[in-house]
Design a protein around this nucleic acid. Structure first.
Lengths: 190, 190
DNA sequence: ATTATCTATAGATCTATAGATAATGC
DNA sequence: ATTATCTATAGATCTATAGATAATGC
């Protein structure tokens, strides 16, 4: 391939897929997964709905790609979580409502029957609680200052993160998500 | 109206509406609001979809009735909340996954654009945070033992309640929702 | 008269399949 | 040859409207 040449077909194809996944993220944020139509995603990347199905053969395949993409954002591996990094993550999220909204909408839908993301979230939360417990253990040992074990504090930490996101998405003016999360950290740690 | 007579038409009609609302609750728990079809609700009460529309002229009118019904369950007025009563409420909820699931699914959907329950949840959370702050103030005064003001503890309390529900709905075996909530109360209160 | 319920149906969608056509890369 | 994309379309839904029919209550 000569210098300055266009991308290879494979690279072009991968970029197209990435574009489609980004568009799907947006449409899911706006309408949820069940409400997101392939046509709406396709339109955003200048394809017909049938053209999109060339890249992802079913709507569910596209959702799987969206969830994989989500996993890639966890730039910090779970084994390296620390409370101060989590606080930064919350601040970062507070600048990215679209992404928070995509996953809050998906989490909400996932508790309904037969939802294709249900298993993903169930497994992810098991992992996230375990990683959170390890992160707390690394900082505090077997007991937090409040007396809780890392295993019992972990689901509370996760609950606060998710619960604050819903309150903040519904009413960003009234809810200081990063501030509330720092309050919770000080509660745990004192 | 003679003794032992059947109900009045009006009473019969109200009972039919209540039946429909209950059925809608179930279908929304299973499929969310966008995924819930009027036909599925109608079938559950032995009506055709068009027959159902005699009682609720649009799908949105049915949702409004569902949300009103939800408000009626808050048997304990917000002005009388106390931490120990909240703990009982969580235990009660842990025995009613269907109801928890209906509102967790609706909350998740409500953050998407143009969702007909969005305004309802936005306003409700404003009220719930205020009521929670008052409940905490009544017990602890201007500062909780942890040093937080009631206004800053309130959104955390609400977040823990909602966040735990999602974790519990996804994996009831692994998440002790009432136990975790009590842990959080002891964190706040000590 | 009013209420409850039905059949028929319009008009929008939605996902997915089939198969054509054009462009790209060995 | 393979890849990208399109048109055509099947087959399922969905909500809502129109209008008929039967039952109930003044």
């Amino acid at each position: 391939m000569p210098y300055g040449d266009a991308m290879s077909t494979r690279a072009r194809s991968q970029e197209r897929r990435a574009e489609i996944v980004r568009a799907a993220l947006e449409v899911i944020a706006e309408r949820g997964y069940r409400g997101a139509s392939l046509a709406a995603v396709a339109e955003r990347v200048g394809l017909t709905q049938q053209g999109l199905l060339h890249y992802f053969p079913t709507k569910e395949a596209l959702l799987v790609a969206v969830l994989r993409e989500r996993d890639r954002w966890d730039a910090v591996p779970a084994g390296q979580w620390r409370p101060d990094l989590l606080a930064s993550l919350v601040e970062y999220n507070a600048m990215r409502p679209a992404i928070v909204q995509t996953f809050s909408a998906l989490l909400g839908e996932s508790v309904t029957e037969g939802h294709p993301a249900r298993e993903y979230f169930t497994e992810r939360y098991t992992e996230v609680r375990a990683a959170m417990a390890e992160a707390l253990r690394a900082v505090y040992g077997e007991r937090l200052p409040s007396g809780l074990t890392p295993e019992r504090a972990a689901p509370l930490m996760v609950a606060v993160l998710d619960g604050l996101q819903y309150q903040w998405l519904l009413d960003p003016e009234s809810v200081d998500m990063p501030g509330a999360f720092r309050d919770f950290l000080s509660l745990l740690g004192e």
